[in-house]
Amino acid sequence: MPVRLTEGHRLCAGCAEPIVAKQVLLATDKPVVVANATGCFEVSTSGFPQSAWEVPWIHTAFATTAATISGVESAYVSLKRKGKISEDIRFVAFGGDGATYDIGLQALSGAIERGHRFMYVCLNNEAYMNTGIQRSGATQRGASTTTCPSGTCIPGKKEIPKDLTKIIAAHKLPYAAQASPHNWKDLIAKAAKGFEANGPSFLNIITPCPRGWRYDGANTIEMAKLAVETGMWPLYEYENGKWTLTGETKRIAEGKMERRPLADWLKAQGRFKHLLAPEWKDVVDDIQNNLDASWDELLRLTKL
């Protein structure tokens, strides 16, 4: 398999984004065209005149990745119909959580509703990292960011993140999934399904950020694993209306593995450090309650 994203990009040491992108792009041997939202991944892989991309790649703006790939895919449909191109090409869009949960959600919803055949991959590091760690709609309750810092009165982000994967699933698209790069077999299998789905597909991938989450970059894969094993980032698929647990999440649900305590997750990252103080126990309880409720809801969906 030829390299599709080369070395020499300027992402931080220990960044999970190129790991996720590599795994996603390993999932098809068809030619791919990539669209990229504004953000770390775009800036760091495309500084003119050097590109880390070995495949056709386009970046337009922050909110527009799904719309841009819609245009590319429409051109493909049109030119193929007119007999001007013959290759069987796959289309993939990468965006961070700011680009996906927040500013680009309308474009993504529109693109999925229109039914373009493309896969959207959210590199979810739970904040706007490129601009220096600001809260997004994906930032977890209690996390300290530069726009929801933990202070003496307010302990980090007050709100729970939106459940984007379920919002996307509500479009009743052929395929959506949550994945984590530590379980690369699971991630690649999901990306392969997404690439071959007969319509739009969506992967929401936990993408740890050493700078934003404040941990040693050597632990990036460990951190992704911890997100799954604590239940903070369950692995599952939504395929033609059916919900299925996968990987460690499935093993936990089947009782073959213990779900690790929430405290392991909070202690591992500087962004949650303040929550360990006794005065914020109610916040931790709230996170725990939300975690349990989301977990129960997911189990219910998979049993339907």
Partner: peptide, 14 residues
Amino acid sequence: HSSMSMCIGASAAG
């Protein structure tokens, strides 16, 4: 906003 983005994507695509 998306309409123009789609034109850009389509035009860049050829």
